[in-house]
């Protein structure tokens, strides 16, 4: 687990940032930041992705510890997050990396719960993979190497959140050439392999927001970083620890001990 309280670690990215002639990604981060009116914190949050390093090494990646906070008080079940995710990752018909569940609370009120991969600290899917094709990255994301996956679907069996998908057929054709697919950005996906939410780490490393965060007009989804203790929904940037503490954040299926990286704030769309 990442330690939020590590002061040195928090300081380090800033110093490095200032030394480097930053960043293609910083431009994008700046845009988001400017739009949000919270320039400095957001820059800290999203801009330290190492854009000039060809292949960022683990210690660079580990400078961020991504989490997601989903505020159910704001979610109205519009499914724009699903749409944004589908477009971003060129998902085939019927495949969802984030699902909006319609649920009922104990008082009988309907509420909506977007469920992406929970990016567990103790991911059952990673444990059962026979070939190590799925793994946890230093920044907390659980990814799939579709060049190695043999398509046994054991990970789908192990995932308590049903967050994993399978490419039963060829992916739909891509419009633009995006280069070689990587575990961080597996587009286009490979037939016969497992797929899942990648936390948009390809965006995060270049200072951009995950597709679902960007697409959510209710601003219900925050992307946060345990290292800098900041979280943003694309509009507001807040202190992550306060956001979690003040709102009694919880994990989905907490009892399973998977220690998700996705937090929820209970509610039923009353703030929407």
């Amino acid at each position: 687990m990442a330690e939020v309280s590590d002061k040195n670690d928090q300081a380090a990215p800033n110093q490095k940032l200032s030394r480097r002639r930053l960043l293609k990604g910083l431009g994008a981060a700046g845009l988001v930041a400017a739009a949000s009116g919270a320039l400095l914190p957001l820059k800290d949050l999203v801009a330290a992705g190492d854009a000039d390093a060809e292949a960022p090494n683990d210690s660079d990646i580990a400078k961020h510890q991504w989490v997601m906070v989903i505020d159910l008080r704001r979610c109205d079940g519009c499914e724009k997050c699903m749409k944004g995710c589908r477009r971003e990752h060129n998902l085939p018909e019927g495949q969802e990396w984030i699902k909006t569940l319609e649920l009922e609370d104990a008082s009988g009120q309907t509420y909506y719960m977007p469920v992406p991969c929970q990016h567990c600290e103790e991911p059952p899917c990673v444990n059962v993979c026979p070939v190590g094709a799925t793994y946890k990255v230093a920044d907390g994301a659980v990814l799939v190497d579709q060049d190695r996956c043999i398509g046994c679907r054991m990970c789908m069996a192990a995932c308590p959140y049903d967050a994993r998908t399978f490419n039963w057929d060829d992916p739909p054709p891509t419009d633009d050439v995006m280069g070689e697919p990587t575990p961080e950005f597996p587009v286009p996906q490979q037939k016969g392999t497992a797929g899942k939410c990648v936390l948009c780490v390809h965006n995060l490393r270049f200072g951009k927001l995950p597709a679902c965060v960007k697409a959510c007009t209710m601003r219900a989804i925050y992307i946060g970083d345990l290292k800098t203790d900041l979280a943003t929904n694309g509009k507001q940037t807040v202190k992550l620890s306060d956001l979690l503490k003040d709102n009694d954040a919880f994990h989905y299926k907490e009892e399973l001990n998977t220690h998700p990286r996705v937090y929820y704030i209970a509610g039923h769309g009353q703030d929407s």
Partner: peptide, 25 residues
């Protein structure tokens, strides 16, 4: 189990990158 695989052409991965922690192994 091979008929069931999405990528039976990669069965050799079980030997190259096999993980003893997996029930399939």
């Amino acid at each position: 189990p091979i008929i069931h695989l999405g990528r039976p052409d990669r069965v050799w991965e079980m030997f190259v990158h096999g993980r003893l922690a997996s029930p399939l192994m």
